[in-house]
Design a protein around this nucleic acid. Structure first.
Length: 294
DNA sequence: AATCCGTGGAC
DNA sequence: TGTCCAAGGAT
């Protein structure tokens, strides 16, 4: 096992991407932002938005002072815009209940909106250098191949995967934090889902999946996500319209090419979520933008 | 436990 | 061209 760790850590020392939130001078707030933005989102798309946000709202208190509508607008097309709302709520909680400091304790992090097991562990590790069990899709895939010998991880995360990650984690705090990010990076750059680059993989010599002849995945299939014609698509269209226009928008202009009943349903959902606000005159706007309601 | 929630690049 | 899937979370 020692050779596995050395191989991954040596590879990471040479091949790690330079990402702004990996800079030692990056604040815990910057790390938290990067982790939430990165949920289900490729890092290449996150980086420019992250830079915008850090320049505009360098502390939780700065974001907490902003209107939710401006935050949703600044989220742009990162996807899953409820994350922007939750980040705004989290910033408020941090400002009011944590003296403006991002919590270090994983239980306290986990209590913040939009922060689950993964993100709490990641912030503890990457912002504070603590030993925490970080299990994301990359870690799950690398473990499935290198240790378990299967082509993919199962659709849902299992206790066994978390236990294995905990077993592989170095005892030392700093070594554990580096190990976590190194395995994630290996999964992102080499041990990829589609076309793993085993020819350049530092672990291929001891990889259970490679040694087993790279057998095909035979577990339960993942549920394919529909897109065309779904509420998710229409919600996206409505929100894109509201992001682009400076003033409140009449209902018929929100998503003109889509079914009215579906638009109404999606609009109700967006209002329920707090992503859209009705304003007088049967118009709609991003929330809290008083100039848009005038 | 299963489903919902955006977006866009790679193949 | 359509399918896959990316540093997940909430219900």
């Amino acid at each position: 096992m020692a050779s596995l760790h050395a191989a991954v850590l040596d590879w990471y020392a040479v091949r790690a991407r330079r990402l702004p939130w990996r800079d030692p001078s990056c604040s815990p707030w910057g790390v938290l932002l990067s982790e939430v933005m990165s949920q289900q989102t490729p890092l290449a798309r996150v980086e420019p938005i992250w830079r915008d946000w850090m320049a505009r709202w360098p502390t939780p208190a700065d974001l907490a002072r902003e209107s939710p509508g401006e935050v949703v607008r600044a989220w742009g097309r990162l996807g899953y815009p409820r994350r922007a709302l939750r980040l705004h709520e989290a910033a408020t909680t941090i400002t009011e209940r944590h003296d403006g400091q991002v919590p270090r304790d994983q239980t306290e992090l986990r209590a913040l909106p939009g922060i689950g097991d993964y993100t709490a562990a990641a912030v503890a590790a990457f912002a504070y250098g603590d030993r925490s069990v970080v299990v994301d899709t990359n870690v799950r895939r690398v473990q499935a191949r290198a240790v378990t010998g299967t082509a993919q991880a199962s659709p849902a995360m299992t206790r066994a995967e978390v236990a294995l990650a905990g077993h592989l984690l170095p005892d030392d705090d700093e070594a554990a934090a580096t190990w976590n990010v190194a395995v994630m990076e290996l999964g992102a750059l080499v041990c990829t889902a589609r076309s793993p680059r085993c020819d350049v993989c530092p672990v291929s010599g001891s990889c259970a999946w490679v040694l087993g002849g790279r057998p095909a995945y035979d577990g339960p299939p993942r549920r394919g996500q529909k897109w065309h014609g779904t509420d998710r698509q229409v919600r996206g269209v409505i929100l894109q319209t509201l992001r682009e226009l400076p003033t409140a928008v009449p209902r018929p202009d929100l998503a003109p090419t889509h079914d009215e009943a579906q638009v109404d349903r999606c609009l109700a959902g967006l209002i329920e979520d707090g992503l859209v606000e009705p304003v007088p005159g049967d118009r709609f706007a991003l929330p809290g933008l008083t100039e848009a309601s005038a």
